[in-house]
Simulated scan of single mutants.
Amino acid sequence: MSDANFIDKVPPRSVVIPEEYAGSRLDQVLSDQFPEFSRSRLQHWIKLGLVELDGRPCKAKQRIRGGELINLRPIPQDEVEAEAQAIEFDLVYEDEHLLVINKPAGLVMHPAAGNPDGTLLNGLLNHYRPLQQIPRAGIVHRLDKETSGLLVVAKTLQSQHALVGQLQARSVKREYLAIVQGEMIAGGTVDAPIGRHPVNRLRMTVHETGKHAVTHYRIEQRFRAHTLLRVRLETGRTHQIRVHMRHIRHPLLGDPLYGGRLKLPSAINDELAAAIKGFRRQALHATRLELIHPETGEQVAWEAPVPADMQQMIDLLAEDAGL
């Protein structure tokens, strides 16, 4: 089916309500029976008379007996008003249900103050127009502007609901590679709540009133004054890895918000010194993504190698350490 046909026509749906729904509200039943549509959209269609119960108009709060026939005549409805734009991004995987993208550093996820367009969301709409009809154009989790790597995008409401449920259940496995300042001795876990900084509202911080946050990390490679870590998120708080690494006094290399004062290793050559000074983004890359496919139920995974800027930094640090 082409994008245009999807937008211009949504086929009618019919279903006989199972007996176990007796006593439930109609809008709740519709939400369960037609998970590809949001409840607010279904309620709107009820008001427009596009839902019939045994051939008669109905109301959202109407109670169900069980065994009735629901006829639904969906109509297209945009959830996203942003402009479709040709934005370059690396498409790792695509099927009828989801997209997996390797986001480059520097690309903002969605329009906001200071970034009205030119975002990944604008590019997604250009790539697949029906995403206009999915909240947030199918984006279910985010990467910071200057963080590169893998993220999944839902192409249907049903997939979006399933993926959000997996994120909430913590069954989505996300691994990152990070270059941190300082030579670490061993891996470990940071279990510390994260909330908005009380003074600098652009920052997050470890705070007792924050939300539960857990980050696991292990050492991939040690350098003289830096460490390459493989990091696994158990929760998904804003800036979580960046905040937790700063909390244990090993902030990410190049992090402009949490990195603190730049520290150079002693007796380094000019090339490495220039590279460290010139690395202007947090050295963080989402390298592996694993989840349950929302349609097939199979465990699927993707990997993305570190981008050129991080690989060059790793190579220079390794050379400096004599590795």
Rank of each mutant, 00 (worst) to 15 (best):
F34Y: 08
H293I: 08
G260L: 07
L99K: 07
T215D: 05
L91M: 09
L284H: 12
E271S: 13
G49H: 02
P305R: 14
D315G: 06
K145P: 01
R222P: 04
K61I: 03
L202T: 12
K61G: 10
T238D: 04
D117N: 12
G67E: 02
G165H: 07
K145V: 15
R39H: 08
P135Y: 00
R196Y: 05
D8R: 14
Q299W: 06
E303W: 05
Q282N: 13
E298K: 15
R73Y: 08
P18R: 01
G106I: 05
R63C: 00
M1A: 10
F89P: 04
L131D: 11
L125F: 10
G67Q: 00
G165W: 02
T119D: 09
I268H: 12
Q33A: 12
E290V: 10
G106C: 12
R129A: 14
L272F: 11
L69R: 02
T287Y: 15
I194Y: 02
P11R: 03
S159Y: 07
A154C: 04
Q62N: 05
L163D: 05
M245Y: 04
A178R: 06
S40F: 09
G165S: 11
P57L: 00
I292Y: 11
G149T: 11
G106Q: 11
R261D: 10
Q299R: 15
G195N: 00
T189H: 00
Q133K: 09
A283V: 10
L257I: 15
P111A: 05
A308R: 11
S159F: 09
L125Y: 10
Q311C: 08
D32Y: 00
I64M: 00
